[in-house]
């Protein structure tokens, strides 16, 4: 027992030291944390509640835009700013930048949570694959709507102010914003999954009809879970918006075929419905992706596809599921003689 807090402290030390030890990987590490956040939040509904959403990317894109509108809106008229498209009005004071960053993150989280409740009220009537397709439809439709909305720059996208300090400090700042959100999310989920709330969400996954028959407020739990998930994705989107500076709706913000699918792959790789699974899956996925994109360029998508196929066919429970099943096999083998001894006594 005493070893556990120690290993968590060690892990925290590694997280804090990482950007200083590997300064040239700062942006890579920040992206890794983004993957961890979206994987963990996807698993809240997909793994723990049994609702496989393909539309969580909606909250990522919406978070980006909410942060941009808040930051720009506090200094200028958003319509004028996007009309000018960089022609002239670009000056932001440090105060405007940092208050925009802070309020943008907060506002994005809250706004996305509210969106999740409203969208969830409709889509949670769908089950199984219908829910997946329904939420994917929401993500695609939102992307298309935003890409036709002149006020936020339509298809051209929108540009945020550049970090006012020097570039390397900015990289470290974004790393710690992502890492801080990720650690907060992890600690939050570690607690949440132990509460009655976590148990009720698992009950919905295992047999929703039974849960209803036992009087569990199923819709309330589903909405609350998705809202919490959307809150963190929205914050991650806001940080991404400031990190990327300029982004456009279809390829960056509402990127259904990239990040929208990657988050699902991360969870499948690591192990659905576990706390560590999404984290390990995100690390494996990100490293694999970066290595193949560098050394197997041209074949990178093939390699990624092969990885997914191998995981789904041979490691259904992902890395964590595989380790757990190996461990329980070993435990059973060890406990069997004990059972026999107890049986003999009786």
């Amino acid at each position: 027992m005493t070893r556990k807090p120690f290993s968590y402290l060690l892990l925290l030390a590694v997280i804090i030291a990482a950007p200083f030890v590997f300064p040239s990987f700062g942006t890579q590490l920040a992206t890794l944390w983004l993957m961890i956040i979206v994987a963990l939040t996807w698993d809240m509904t997909g793994g723990q509640m049994g609702y496989n959403s393909l539309g969580n990317i909606t909250f990522y894109g919406t978070g980006m835009y909410v942060a941009a509108v808040i930051t720009i809106g506090m200094a200028y008229d958003v319509g004028d700013y996007t009309n000018a498209a960089g022609g002239g009005i670009h000056a932001f004071t440090d105060l405007q930048y940092f208050s925009g960053l802070f309020l943008g993150m907060l506002g994005a989280g809250l706004f996305c949570a509210a969106v999740a409740v409203i969208v969830g009220y409709v889509t949670f009537g769908l089950r199984g694959p219908y829910f997946a397709i329904g939420t994917l439809g929401v993500a695609i439709a939102t992307g298309e709507l935003v890409s036709n909305w002149e006020w936020v720059g339509a298809g051209q996208g929108i540009a945020l102010p550049v970090y006012p300090g020097d570039l390397d400090t900015g990289k470290v700042l974004f790393y710690f914003l992502f890492a801080g959100t990720g650690v907060a999310l992890f600690v939050f989920l570690k607690w949440l999954y132990k509460t009655r709330f976590g148990a009720a969400v698992n009950a919905i996954r295992d047999d929703e009809e039974k849960a209803e028959a036992m009087g569990i407020h199923t819709l309330q739990y589903k909405l609350a879970t998705w809202a919490m998930s959307a809150f963190f994705v929205g914050i991650a989107g806001a940080i991404s918006a400031f990190q990327l500076i300029h982004f456009e709706p279809l390829e960056t913000a509402y990127q259904t075929i990239n990040l929208g699918i990657f988050m699902v792959v991360c969870v499948l790789l690591g192990g659905k419905g576990t706390l560590w699974g999404p984290v390990i899956g995100a690390i494996v996925f990100h490293v694999f992706k970066e290595v193949t994109w560098t050394y197997l360029l041209g074949w990178q998508w093939v390699a990624l596809g092969a990885l997914i196929v191998i995981t789904v066919v041979y490691f259904e429970g992902g890395v964590v599921g595989w380790i757990m099943s190996k461990r329980s096999e070993r435990l059973e083998a060890r406990e069997q003689p004990n059972d026999a001894a107890v049986g003999a006594e009786q």
């Binding site: 509460t195 009655r196 709330f197 009720a200 009087g215």
Partner: peptide, 12 residues
Amino acid sequence: HRKMRFAEAFGC
């Protein structure tokens, strides 16, 4: 759950 308020769900 009928005897439980929503906030109580966050208890252990």
